Simulated scan of single mutants.
Amino acid sequence: MWERVEHYSRLNGVSGDESAVREAIIEEVKAYCQYEVDALGNLICFKKGMVTPDKKLMLCAHMDEVGFIVTHITDGGMLKFTTVGGIDSRVVLGRAVNLYRTGTIGVIGTKAIHQQTEQERETVVKVEDMFIDIGASSREEAMNVVRPGDCAVFCTDYEEFGDGLLKGKALDDRLGCAVLVELIRSKLKFDMYFVFTTQEEVGLRGAKAAAYSVNPDFAVVVETTTAADLSGVSEQKQVCALGKGAVVGFMDRATIYDRELYALAYKLAVEKKITAQTKTMVAGGNDAGAIHTSRGGVRTIAVSVPSRYLHSGVCTVKKEDVKAVLKLVYELTETIL
């Protein structure tokens, strides 16, 4: 599974431009399920199990990652840009990025510190005051390799380090995609749908369309979620922590989760000896926000991998937590229906 996680992390797929990720997933699942791609680019798979249930279950993970999009090219060849998805400007400045349509590498910069006013030095630089430097000296030179609308992602190395930790870009939510692929390629008790969604990071757009098409009775969203288990952060505000297992939340900013499914997840975790935790704060959101209100409503739960430094170039997770998420999601698929 870890080779798959690394492969997916290295793929580039900013919201609305997920084709490379989708094609890689199709290559791995096409022999195990029926599939189709809808108008928004969602990959919708149907996996035949040993039993056809009366109710319909959908598992969901999103393919897209946060990134950047070029909005303008200056006379001097610098690229003005904005973010795609929620990226804190404090993790952007000075980072190398890959404008992956052409493989052009650039560096995000801003006005030199000795040219800044005293007020500018004391405030966080806004994205609108930054640029991507690709080494071009004119707009014409830059236009040979880049055009407005091109997307960029963080340049970062996928690496394992410390006590079973790994870091990389786009682990939100390529980890969820890897978990779903693992399940599709396994023997399952019930028929079910697996949906790999687009545009989650810009408003849950793919999930809204996919949930309407599939029309499930139940949904399990497989995600990553913010872990703030860092020095100086009180336990109450850490949200969740690495090494404490799968995260099953009762509420976030987009969803109040089905209470029976929430209880079931913890019951299964205890019975099957799967490490699990809940969030200590109401924070974040995911595709469940669009799914649970689709049509006449969908009973929904989310199971997430805790991740430090979410929406940066170095999402950091613990491998044991990923294993716990895989085990718990599998047990839910065996039990919900």
Rank of each mutant, 00 (worst) to 15 (best):
K167Q: 15
S89D: 12
P306E: 07
F218G: 04
T255Q: 06
Y330E: 10
N286P: 00
G85H: 09
G106L: 07
I105H: 11
H62P: 13
K48R: 15
S234N: 13
M1W: 12
P306M: 02
H114R: 04
G284H: 02
Y262P: 00
Y212W: 02
D150L: 03
Y262E: 04
G206K: 00
G164F: 04
L230P: 00
E128L: 01
D191H: 12
A276H: 08
A142Y: 03
L310S: 10
V233F: 08
G296V: 05
T83K: 14
G296D: 10
G162D: 12
F161P: 13
M192Q: 13
L166E: 13
M130D: 11
P306F: 06
E235P: 05
A265W: 06
E159N: 14
R95H: 13
D17Q: 09
E23K: 09
V314G: 07
V92T: 12
D133R: 05
V29C: 01
K55E: 15
F194C: 14
Y330C: 02
Q238R: 14
E223N: 02
V248D: 06
H72F: 12
L188P: 02
L40Y: 10
R121E: 11
E122K: 14
I184A: 11
V322H: 08
A207G: 05
G297K: 08
D321E: 12
Y212P: 00
M130K: 10
D229P: 06
V14Q: 05
K273C: 03
E201I: 03
V37H: 04
L326A: 15
